[in-house]
Amino acid sequence: MTEQTSPHLEIRTSLTPAQAAEVRDLARRAADADGVEALSEQTLLHLDAAPGAHRHVLAGLEGGNDAGGMHGAIIGYAHLDHTDPEAGAEIVVAPESRRHGLGTALWGAVTDLVPDARVWAHGDVPPASAWAEHAGLRVVRELLRMARPLEGLADAAVDLPEGYTARTFARADEQTDTRAALEADIQAWAALNARAFATHAEQGRMTAADVRARMAEPWFDADGFFLVADPEGRLVAFHWTKTEDGEGEVYVVGVDPDRQGLGLGKAATLLGLRHLARAGLTRVTLYVDGDNAAALATYRRLGFERISLDVQYAA
């Protein structure tokens, strides 16, 4: 782009399908330019959400063709859950429209809505850290991405406490009893996840509806979703794996706070790693908060090493 005119900002509680598609394309182009995803999976899923807690800030150039109510094509986007400042906003600017103050304008719109909002920088690439420094922001949270090869894990031994059992998530089909079992698993998982991540800004707020939304994604596989129950049949731990683009991911591992110290986190993790290895994958990744010492220790003992870092900034 050789000339930049003033951007037009529009704040919406929901997006049209055309706008959501434009934002996805914008995120893809930014990811191609930066070598790191511009928007998280959670935000991409929320592009199609009904009006509610989410605020979408769209930036387009004055003039040009109409794009779902915007003036010109969408060249910048910010997402915010205005009910939870700690969840963190996300901002993406088209590669050809950077260094013209558009990121600052989008951040200004976000902080007008929530003055103490936070913002994520995926990969913490130099342009993002430079912008944060210029904006007077500091790092308040770190999210590590870790990885390890899956070689040798296809026959990994999984040791559960006596009386504890493991199985996979219920499958969806047309049978009434199976649908009932599936709904029971969804509700039990959501309750356990809320307990396990009670202090986690994003994960702890996942609902049964969020599970159903992910079940509709192409990557969802019930055979890669492991549930661990105690001798009374109560769900106490889980490991939800993800496979996408030929790579495995420890999507989320959770343990009931009342059952910490029994080795359930390690056992649940190994259940998923063994499954991914048997599926023929060669590498697995995961995300973990930098201040989660217990999880970091478990993953390091299992051979995971840091490969990148996401950071969250705040004033």
Rank of each mutant, 00 (worst) to 15 (best):
T2D: 14
T2N: 14
E10C: 08
R12A: 11
S14K: 02
A20L: 12
R24F: 12
A30P: 04
A33F: 12
D34S: 09
G35L: 14
V36G: 01
V36I: 15
Q42A: 12
T43P: 00
L44R: 14
L45Y: 05
D48G: 10
A50K: 13
A50N: 05
R55E: 04
V57C: 10
L61Y: 06
L61S: 05
E62V: 11
D66W: 11
D66N: 13
G69Q: 06
H71V: 06
H71Y: 03
I75Y: 01
G76L: 08
L80T: 08
H82V: 09
H82N: 04
E86I: 04
E86W: 08
E90P: 10
V92F: 13
V93R: 09
E96K: 03
R98A: 06
R98L: 05
L102N: 03
G103W: 14
G108C: 05
V110T: 07
V110L: 04
D112P: 00
V114Q: 11
D116T: 13
D116M: 01
W120L: 10
G123E: 12
P127E: 15
S129R: 15
A132T: 12
E133W: 04
G136R: 15
L137N: 03
V140R: 10
R141A: 13
L144C: 10
L144S: 06
R148K: 15
R148V: 03
G152V: 05
G152S: 09
A156W: 11
L160Y: 06
R167D: 11
R167Q: 08
F169G: 01
D173K: 09
T176D: 14
T176I: 12
R179K: 13
A180I: 13
L182W: 11
Q187K: 11
A188W: 03
N193T: 02
N193F: 01
A194M: 03
A196G: 10
A196F: 01
F197R: 01
T199R: 06
T199F: 05
A201I: 04
Q203G: 04
Q203W: 09
G204N: 02
G204Y: 07
A208M: 12
A208W: 07
A209S: 07
R212D: 02
A213Y: 01
A213R: 13
A213T: 09
E217M: 15
P218I: 08
P218G: 09
F220D: 02
D223S: 15
G224D: 09
G224C: 11
F225H: 03
F226T: 02
L227A: 10
E232Q: 15
G233Q: 15
G233W: 09
E244F: 07
G246D: 10
E247L: 12
E247C: 03
Y251T: 01
V252R: 00
V255Y: 01
G261S: 13
A268P: 01
T269S: 13
L271R: 01
L273W: 07
L273S: 07
L276W: 06
R278P: 03
L286W: 06
G290Y: 09
A295K: 08
A295V: 06
L296V: 12
R300I: 04
R301P: 00
L302N: 02
L302Q: 11
L302I: 06
R306L: 07
I307R: 15
D310Y: 02
V311F: 10
Y313C: 02
A314K: 08
A314W: 08
